[in-house]
Amino acid sequence: MAENNGEIKLFGVLGSPFVRRVQIALKLKGVEYTYVEEDLKNKSDLLLKYNPVHKKVPVLVHNGKPLAESLVILEYIDETWGNHPLLPQQPYERALARFWSRFIDDKCLPAISKAAWNVEKEEREKGIEESSEAIQFLENELKHKFFGGENIGFVDIVAGFLAFWLPVIEEASGFTLLSSEKFPKLHKWSEEFINHPVVKENLPPRERLLGFFKARHASITASK
């Protein structure tokens, strides 16, 4: 049953993996919220008011109190609504989940960006190598159906970029990282993740995302 503890608004954009993290967490918890689509080329006064530091999405507003940054928002959601816990209950396991979540954002995503959007061959190859090394750590860490065990947890939600966005970027940019041969556990995990009912209904349209990334790749290529 859906919960509603006061007024909850989420400011986001359609294709953002960081916004989708928050949406998936709220849906897993059964929390009702109002979604506000932003235009990042013409940011609303409310977005600038609620996130004056970074001026970006996602922003979660709960009873008039705003929070920015997806990892911060996920922890807040987990602590505020106790059902379907996202972080492990044991302190050490919780700390590890936070560590791997930061690892994904601080190591994996920048390396993948370098591999995807660099037209210089040397830099692109360096990005692919760095991405593969980072992803290998996650492959080694994955010991169950999900990072959270048998149920989707905090790290799974954060790693959702690898399951859905990365294959689209690979297709748009013409390279392959997450192959079933090289990363069999992560490949199987990604299929389980994107086919989970809650995740599946909260992913952006793939073709629209692919068109966006193809246009971005073409623009970068044309500028060189």
Rank of each mutant, 00 (worst) to 15 (best):
L210K: 03
K27N: 04
K145L: 08
G82L: 13
K126Q: 15
F146R: 00
E181K: 14
F183Y: 15
L28P: 01
A215W: 14
R208T: 11
M1L: 10
S179N: 05
S132M: 10
H196G: 04
V61T: 10
S70I: 11
N202T: 10
V36Q: 13
P85H: 12
L47C: 05
L203A: 07
S16Y: 14
A2Y: 09
L209H: 07
S70Y: 12
L86D: 04
G153A: 08
F137M: 06
Q89V: 09
F213V: 06
K65E: 15
F147C: 03
L71W: 08
R98A: 02
Q136S: 06
L87D: 03
E141L: 09
S179D: 08
A25G: 14
H187V: 04
P184K: 06
R98I: 04
G15V: 00
A25N: 11
S70R: 13
K43N: 09
R208G: 05
K107G: 02
L87G: 03
K200W: 06
F161C: 01
D105I: 03
N63Q: 15
E130P: 00
K185E: 04
V57M: 06
A95R: 02
I112Y: 04
P184W: 04
R124Q: 15
E129F: 10
K49A: 13
L74K: 09
V59I: 13
L14F: 07
